[in-house]
């Protein structure tokens, strides 16, 4: 068990910069009534961010152009079908892992 001073400083600094964006809205929004248009804008955030995170999972970033991780995309399709059919978080996660493992095993 050891801790390096510069690593400790990095950890503390990173803790502060991740803490701030997480808590600021919880402090600010208490004191103001959000305009209707902002509430509407916020209502689109969940769907947009989930879609963006899913796309992020099958993009491989490299120096040049964009490349697609086809194995992840191949696992996404059956997982999506199971999500629509089961409407269950746990079922989707378990089936998704099995799909991904199968794809990686086969290819």
């Amino acid at each position: 068990m050891s801790i390096n001073l510069s690593v400790l400083l990095v950890i503390l600094g990173c803790a502060i910069v991740t803490f701030i964006p997480r808590i600021i809205p919880f402090i600010v929004i208490r004191n103001i009534e959000l305009p209707k248009i902002v509430v509407k804008w916020l209502s689109f955030i969940p769907i947009c961010i989930f879609a963006a995170l899913i796309v992020d999972s099958f993009i491989i970033e490299n120096e040049s152009l964009l490349s697609i991780d086809w194995s992840v995309l191949a696992a996404i399709i059956p997982t999506l079908i199971v999500a629509i059919w089961s409407k269950s978080l746990s079922v989707t996660v378990i089936v998704g892992i099995v799909c991904m493992a199968t794809v990686r095993f086969l290819f």
Binding site: L53, S57, F58, A75, A83, K87, S88, L89, T92, M100
Partner: peptide
């Protein structure tokens, strides 16, 4: 892949 699967279900 569990994270991606979860985001799919949440979407």
């Amino acid at each position: 892949f569990s994270l991606t699967a979860m985001f799919l279900a949440l979407l």
